[in-house]
Nucleic acid binder design. Structure first.
Lengths: 159, 159
DNA sequence: TCACGCGTTGACGTTTACGTCAGCCGCGCG
DNA sequence: CGCGCGGCTGACGTAAACGTCAACGCGTGA
């Protein structure tokens, strides 16, 4: 059994992928509607392959970094067209370079933000140290994976 | 005249800020509706101070890194409450730390994406080099600030 | 056999972040 | 005096990314 799990022929149900990646079936079907996924069918049921799973990973990572589904679809389509069409590849290259520039900009923005936040934290810490060290201790409480959220399939976050 | 421009008493009209930051009046009014900005009024007209301008910068940077307006408002409110209330400050500190963690995660995601994109670019370049060097040259065309966009106030991007 | 659980397809609702449009105001000018 | 410009206030529209709900199919275990 444990052997089968690593075989590339391994397939997944919609629910398995949802549990693994903490999303909802609705989302996966939505991505399919939008042309980002196209799992095989067994009757009506969707059967996701390893490739589908990889695509899903790309989709979710893209989302985390702020890409729209349309943009992600473009990228996936460009990836898929490795088969031929030099013109297509040239276009893909341009697109990719644009994305790189955009990502670098975004990274710089985040770094600025991080610097500001760290400075603000330092100020707050210094202030609290003097005025209310007890509160400073309470502020150190890290979220630490509340067990109640484990049963839920997806967390809304900033949807 | 050039002297006046740097004085902290300098104020701005809505249009000036829009031109400077490439956004629309509608957006600024929207941010105001949502409590992110609250410029002074001269009659009905909005008068933006340097502080307002700084807040706007923070808003736009927050947006670039994928924060929702609600999240940005929280942060701005926390910044504003530097006046007192140690408990408030402790809460602010927690919030800030959460944001730092989130941003670091996002940065890591971006780095992964960048690595993947660069690798994909390298593969495409190598491929085109062999198959169609002319197309490779055309792919190098960088956008280079098309002059037609200069007249428009805001670019839609992935709104 | 029949209720359960998992899965499916519509179809409508919701939130976010504005765009767009209509209608009104004050003012500088030809 | 009209009118064009910049600004203002609603009010409605919209695109993205799903959530939610209803109604159905299909295998299966008590």
């Amino acid at each position: 059994m444990a052997v089968e799990l690593r075989r590339p022929e391994r397939t997944f149900t919609i629910r398995q992928l949802c549990l693994e990646f903490r999303c909802t079936p609705r989302a996966l079907r939505f991505y399919e509607d939008k042309g980002l996924l196209s799992p095989a069918r067994q009757g009506l049921n969707r059967i996701y392959s390893y490739k589908d799973r990889a695509r899903l990973q790309l989709i979710l990572r893209g989302k985390r970094v702020g890409l729209s589904l349309a943009e992600i679809r473009e990228i996936l389509q460009l990836y898929g067209k490795g088969d031929g069409g030099a013109a297509q590849n040239a276009k893909a290259l341009r697109k990719f370079r644009e994305r790189i520039v955009a990502f670098e900009q975004q990274r710089a923005d985040i770094d600025e933000h991080l610097a500001e936040l760290r400075e603000a934290c330092a100020r707050l810490e210094a202030f609290l140290e003097k005025s209310a060290p007890d509160l400073l201790a309470s502020a150190a409480e890290m979220p630490a994976r509340s067990s109640t959220t484990d049963r839920r399939m997806a967390s809304p976050r900033h949807a």
